[in-house]
Amino acid sequence: MSRSRLAYSLAGAALLAARPALAQAADTGAASATDAQRTMLWFVLTTLVLVLMVFLLLVVALINWMRPQLRQLYDLPTVHDTWSGRVLGLLVGDARLVQGEVRDELLDHDYDGIHEFDNDLPPWWKYGFYATIVFAIGYVTYYHVLKTGQLQGAEYAAEMQQAALLIAATPDDPNQVTTYTALTAPAELSSGKSLFMTNCAPCHGASGEGKVGPNLTDEYWLHGGEVNHVYKTIKYGVNGKGMVAWKGKLSGKQMLQVASYVLSLQGTKPANAKPPQGEKEAPAKAVASR
């Protein structure tokens, strides 16, 4: 090998060896830059808040210092009853702009000793009422006249459709029934029986006769008696009925073993069987353990 090729090889090896360190240094530099930007942002926001507080204090101090002059200006007849004069009145302690005119003039109405005064409605209330009128006109025009926006029913339907698409896109869709076939091997059914006795017998009985849960040996089913429907019930449970979801506690194969064992109990007629519940279905093909 020539010296130039050897040098190139050594340089390439050095670059490969240094790549992780360079990548780590780049990540560290990026993190440092992000921290610096965050620190600068908080500094700017804090400075802005302090400047605004100082400005407000200066405005309050200026108004307090000029209050005698403002009062003289407010008392002028040409200023006192104008809208701008009422705004000026807020600075000198007159809240007519917010509270309205309080005349306390007694009207001729007298009901069971209850007297009525002639006072203005508070302006803030009237302005709020006018705002609701403007909003109502805009709402009716937008939703009912131009039909630009969706009403509640259409919006709900669109959101439900989007949610259904999102759920269907997931590999673990509770609305999608699997296409398994019942297991028939004795070893599989034995494993299913062991799992059933440990997890299911307290509610369904050791022989599937039904206790808190329904009878699993008759032809009646609450959520379907085909193996994939039984598998789905085991996997996702039944909300509000006491049937817990075994997803995450049992593997997919174990849940299929239990479902297959449950179907093997069809027609066994155990003692003290619970009365039928649900809809009658054609009996599943017998799965015998031998």
Rank of each mutant, 00 (worst) to 15 (best):
G210E: 07
L6T: 06
D110G: 01
A273K: 14
A245G: 05
K249L: 10
L57W: 11
L90M: 14
D110W: 01
A158T: 05
Y156Q: 12
D94P: 11
L165V: 11
L73R: 13
T46M: 12
S84Q: 14
P186K: 09
P174V: 08
L88I: 04
A259W: 01
Y261T: 06
K232A: 15
P214R: 10
Q72P: 01
N199L: 15
E101N: 11
A163P: 00
L16W: 02
L56G: 06
I63H: 12
G12F: 08
L166Y: 09
S84A: 15
V134A: 14
F135Q: 02
K126M: 15
M243H: 03
G12D: 05
E188R: 07
G93I: 06
A95I: 07
D81H: 12
T78F: 11
L88E: 04
V102I: 11
S289T: 13
Y156G: 01
Y236R: 04
A13K: 00
A31M: 11
H144F: 13
L250S: 02
G248E: 03
T170P: 00
L50Q: 08
N215A: 05
C203E: 05
Q277N: 09
L250A: 06
A36Y: 07
A187C: 00
K280I: 02
T46H: 09
T268H: 05
I167L: 14
P276R: 11
A169D: 11
V287L: 15
N64T: 12
M53A: 15
R96K: 12
F117W: 10
H109S: 13
G93P: 06
G113S: 03
V60T: 09
L45W: 10
Y74G: 00
K147Q: 09
E116H: 08
T34Q: 12
G100S: 06
M66K: 15
K247W: 00
T170S: 14
A11Q: 07
G248I: 03
D81F: 08
H109G: 07
G210Y: 00
G225E: 01
S260V: 03
Q37D: 10
K147W: 07
P77Q: 07
A95Q: 13
G225Q: 01
L189S: 06
K241Q: 13
R3P: 04
T217C: 02
K126A: 14
A286Y: 03
A259I: 02
M160G: 07
F196D: 00
N215V: 02
L189E: 04
W246Y: 15
Q24Y: 07
H115C: 05
Y111H: 14
D94Q: 10
T217H: 01
Q176L: 11
G242T: 04
L50N: 07
M53Y: 03
V59L: 11
E219S: 11
N215Y: 04
G240A: 05
W124C: 08
A245H: 00
N64Q: 14
S251F: 08
K269C: 08
A14D: 03
F117A: 10
A273H: 07
V230T: 12
E219C: 02
A11P: 02
V177A: 08
Q162I: 10
A245F: 03
T268K: 12
H144C: 13
C203N: 04
A185K: 07
D112K: 13
V51R: 08
M66L: 15
T28L: 14
A30H: 05
L15P: 00
A23V: 12
R19A: 13
Y261N: 05
Y156M: 13
N228A: 01
G252L: 01
R71A: 13
T141N: 11
T198D: 12
A7K: 09
D81V: 01
V44G: 02
